[in-house]
Every structure is written in structure tokens, then in C-alpha cells.
Design a protein around this nucleic acid. Structure first.
Lengths: 200, 200
DNA sequence: GCTGTTTCATAACGACCATTATTAAACCGC
DNA sequence: GCGGTTTAATAATGGTCGTTATGAAACAGC
């Protein structure tokens, strides 16, 4: 019973996601959010809670809708294919939308006021989870002989994430897809092969 | 004539730099800045102008005081030494101070409100200048035969900057110096040598 | 057609933002 | 010591922040 909701909650969340993606957590104001969602403030609060909860839901949606290339990558047969899929997937996603470039896990909060600290930690934690999964995948690759004994799965995972973060920063700065593909390509040149010690 | 200034302007600028370094441009409030500088608001305004001008001066100081490893690197004899010096220099700087980790050129503004757009552009421009200088150094290395004909100076420079940015993000997230040195080391494994085509 | 419930839009809330008027205090040259 | 000038500290400015109280409107069940 009661009055029906007149707006699409999923659509409003998508709109909020775009704003956060573009301006970050603290840079996005409710004026921005309501304008993008086409919905008044109290509607956002009743549907999603406060700003922090709204961001968390937007982040979850971001993961589900745009980061599918991550679990995809982990299932590929070789560590090199895993790395390549992640790098080119990141380049593609970070340059796909002109009005919100880069990665929400980086744009969300990097440095900010004390109020944004919980959100910053959420993003750090999310990135750490991804890095751990990649490391475990590389440990498997090493056990399978896909990576040489000299390879260090933890360093490779941290390196791969670092390049991904760097690509996100550069994408947000306006770098072309083509340039970033060059970055990804360069990163892959270092990839250890099974026979040689390290490098191509 | 007139009353003498009772605080050290250089010291106040150093304090402001630390706050911006830690919290970014928008995350730093005048409450933070005055507390750190030990000086009231009007003193900061009369000495440095408004917040944007203060940030620009802090950024200039950051460059002069902490980024000396950049011009240093460009003078080294081989492109590999250049890259190594930049990478390990970034790791060192980005983990040197526990209360303000990472890089001001990244922490300053990545994504923010429209008000921060001019500052964001300043940082983008600064990073672009660095990348250009590195690229030109690599072009010289190619001409000198230090880099092979197959090497792409533009891609190498963009890649080097990407790894540096990634290291900055990870340093801000709390990664240890040791871990980040692993990232730098991994990045250097891809470095083209004069004789082989690419890679080690 | 009521009653109870939920959503809607408007507008207000206190807090904090960057910025600046204002006034008192400290200094130099005379 | 007085006049002119600069700085210091306090406090106020208008604006925007995130959040919510308020009352009208729309619905379901009886």
C-alpha cells in the first residue's frame, strides 16, 4: 500500500555512478547527483541512504557492470594472457566514456578530507582484493610451470596493478586509447616466459 | 615601514605543502592549513593569495625541493639508468614521509568538483612536461644507439610515467617501500637493450 | 469515500567552506 | 611622541555542503 515510486531506482543508481566516476566521492555534490538522476534529494536518501551508502552501492554496481573483464582474465590459460586481458580491459574501460574517464576505484578518493577516509579505505580494500586474486593466479601459473621459478607472483601482481592504476590516471588526464594501448603493450614486454629466466 | 611579519613565510608554505600533499587540493581546508602553519587565515591570504594561488606555490616548492631526481635522471648516460633513477626516486619520495605519502602531482586533484578544474589542469600539464622531457631523452638515446631501432620513445615515456603514477597510488594506499621497489624492478625488466630487439 | 501508508516537492536545517571587514597592535621615519 | 603603514587576531560574510522536517499528493484495503 501507499504511493508508488515514480522513478527507476536502477536508473538513478546508474546516474549517480556516472557522477561519482567523473567527480569522485567528495567532488560529487547532491546538486550534481540529483541533476543527473532527475530526482529530488529526499528520493535519493530514501532509496539509497546517505552519500556514503549511495557511493558504496554505486561502487558495487560499477564492479558488477564494468569489471567483468577481471574474473574473465583470471580464467585464461596463461599468466601472460591474464595480464594482457586485464591491461587491455582497463584501457578499454578507462577510455570508453568521454564524460567519465578513468576508473572509479581510483577516481573515487585518492587523497581527501578526513570525512572521506572510510570511503578511501573501501577503495583500497577493493584494489587489494583484486591484487590478491591476481597474485594467487600467478602462484598457480608458477606451480604449473607457466611462469619460471625465478618469477615473483607478488611483485608481478603489484606491478600489473600499478600499470593499471597508471593507465587510469592517464586516462583521466585525457590520454588517447591508442597511447594507453602502447603503455599496456610496453608493460607486457617484460612478461616472464616459461623457458627464459625473465623478459622476452 | 609598518609592522613586521611575525611568522616565517617559507615555513608556512612548507606546512601548507604537507597538508595539500596529504589531503589533496579540495580535501585541504583552511582549518587544516592554518592549524598546520600555526598562522591565522588572513595571514595566509596576505602572504600567498587565495587557495588556488597557495596551492600553485606549494606545488612549485614541491617541485624544487623534492623532484630534483627528475632532472638528475635525464642526465644519466643510458635510458635504462634514466628509467631506474626515476622509478626508484619515485619509490623513495612516495614512501619517505608517513604522514603524506604518494605524489602531490597525483594526490592534488585526480577527480573533483568543477571548482578544482583549473588546478587539475595544472597538474596534468606538469605531468605532461615531465613525460615530454623523458620522451625527448629517449629519442636521443635511440639516436645514440642506446635504444634499438624498434624502441618507441613515446610509448616508453608514457609507460614509465604510468608506472610512476601507479606507484604513487599504491604508496598512498600504504604499500611498503619494499613492495614498491619490487614494482620498479619489474618495470625495468621490460627495458629494451641496444642489441636485442626488445626485452632483456 | 474514508483510513493508513508511502512518495513527492519545497524548503529549511546547522555546519563548514573560502574569503574578507574590522579593529587593535607593532613598527619606521621624522 | 606623532603620522603613516603594515600585520595580527577576531569575527563576520555569503554560499554551499549533506541531511531532514514538512505538508501535499497518490495509492491499497476496507
Amino acid at each position: 500500500m501507499g504511493r508508488h515510486r515514480e522513478f527507476d531506482v536502477e536508473q538513478a543508481l546508474d546516474a549517480a555512478l556516472c557522477v561519482f566516476w567523473r567527480k569522485g566521492y567528495e567532488g560529487a555534490s547532491y546538486a550534481d547527483l540529483t541533476a543527473a538522476a532527475g530526482v529530488e534529494r529526499p528520493a535519493l536518501y530514501s532509496a539509497f541512504g546517505n552519500k556514503e551508502e549511495l557511493f558504496r552501492k554505486a561502487l558495487q554496481r560499477y564492479y558488477e557492470r564494468f569489471l567483468h573483464y577481471m574474473p574473465e582474465a583470471l580464467m585464461l590459460p596463461t599468466s601472460r594472457e591474464v595480464a594482457a586481458h586485464i591491461l587491455y580491459g582497463a584501457v578499454d574501460l578507462n577510455t570508453r566514456f568521454d564524460d567519465h574517464r578513468g576508473c572509479l576505484y581510483i577516481n573515487g578518493v585518492l587523497a581527501g578530507s578526513d570525512e572521506a577516509e572510510p570511503v578511501r579505505q573501501v577503495l583500497i580494500e577493493g584494489r587489494a582484493i583484486a591484487e590478491r586474486e591476481i597474485r594467487e593466479r600467478f602462484e598457480r601459473a608458477k606451480a604449473e610451470g607457466d611462469l619460471p621459478e625465478s618469477a615473483r607472483p607478488d611483485a608481478l601482481a603489484a606491478f600489473l596493478m600499478a600499470v593499471t592504476h597508471g593507465i587510469a590516471v592517464q586516462a583521466k588526464a585525457g590520454f588517447s586509447r591508442q597511447t594507453l594501448e602502447g603503455v599496456a603493450e610496453q608493460a607486457l614486454m617484460s612478461w616472464p616466459s616459461a623457458d627464459s629466466g625473465q623478459g622476452v
